[in-house]
Design a protein around this nucleic acid. Sequence first.
DNA 1: CTCAGTTTGTAAGTTATTTCACATAATATA
DNA 2: TATATTATGTGAAATAACTTACAAACTGAG
Lengths: 221, 221
Amino acid sequence: MKNIIDLPNATAERIPMYYRYLKMLEENQVQRIKSQEFSKIVHVPSATIRRDFSCFGELGRSGYGYDVVFLEKTFAKVLNIERLEKIALIGVGNLGLALIKNNFRRNPNLQITIAFEVNETLTDTIVSGVPIYGMDLLKEKIKENEITTAISTVPSSDANQVLQNLAAAGVHAVLNFAPERLDIPEGMTVRYIDLTSELQNLIYLSNRNQARIENDMVDQF
Amino acid sequence: MKNIIDLPNATAERIPMYYRYLKMLEENQVQRIKSQEFSKIVHVPSATIRRDFSCFGELGRSGYGYDVVFLEKTFAKVLNIERLEKIALIGVGNLGLALIKNNFRRNPNLQITIAFEVNETLTDTIVSGVPIYGMDLLKEKIKENEITTAISTVPSSDANQVLQNLAAAGVHAVLNFAPERLDIPEGMTVRYIDLTSELQNLIYLSNRNQARIENDMVDQF
DNA sequence: CTCAGTTTGTAAGTTATTTCACATAATATA
DNA sequence: TATATTATGTGAAATAACTTACAAACTGAG
């Protein structure tokens, strides 16, 4: 069983996705799964799956496959799922609102607990059970609630300032929806989701696929 | 200049991000940029940047760097930006609504043109200039508008059915927000955005970073 | 124009990731 | 219990991605 510290990055990236599908299988009363079957579900080659799993010990049984519940429990431990992760949301615009309303409902360990917004028509209200404060209370409230994880949907121009404040308040993990690259404070982990680039990327890769298909057509003759 | 077909995947993944920052630089009247400066902005090593760029020819000049406008134009061509990409949105819930309202405003070539939703209080209305139809009109309207790209925010249970219908309507690129893995029709390119897994991943990687930091502390003594 | 100082583009070397392929071990059936 | 079958876990090979390091090319100051 490898230490979390020297787990290959590529593997680490896939764990949450594996976990999600294992939970789905469990919900559907599936008791056992072979790496080949799982491969079809998660779209990852079975050899890669087996190698990934093997980082956490010998989880399966030859000639049988993997016990879904056991796998699910193992990854839950790896992901530290039993711990409630209180999350602060910074920026309650259209996207922020969507996040609050959804609030990772299917994952009881993930919960947006407080939110912050500059727009004064929203501050000091409660949306979907989440209290919304002004930016001036950011540090205070985050410390008070001992929150270490945040989601930022604020515009690029403010993103850096917000990040510094979050760091000062003790946050060390931020999911950031602004495309601007940030000056990341020491010890902080930031993950970007840039929907525009994702879409652009999709279109680009799709064009490439189409080109490949045409290319293969030509090769055939 | 490499053909789009055999561009390395890792490079292809970075192009839209490069493009986005080049546009920002252009907006800020920056005329030239060195790979080392750009590296600080996009958080990619300068050697990787140079290698990536070199896939598209010799774009820079020794002792000078890269001309921002020229780069931007080059990548615009690569990404086929001049073409207006009309996009269909399937599922106008909280997230869908946020997407419509934002509608990639800063990228005039990307535009959600029509949307579809089962909820009848929304069908046959217009939101932020985007007409919303019932699901029964999906094929017809998509064909009529010659749309080949779609964003799907429908729940897992319906995602597969929607995908088949989209394929039948001629769509070959889909950005999918449902976590369910799909049976991807021949010739279709699907990209997943799973916000829950992203968040879970962030927390996991952050924990790993924290563990590494502690580990380094110990090593020092 | 000259030349010291830059910065590119890439060959070669390194590291990371994926894939193959199979010995090993457990299953399942009779 | 015996045995044909199945599927894991993992060396070893292959591929992909990244990094180093530097010759060659260009700049810009004098």
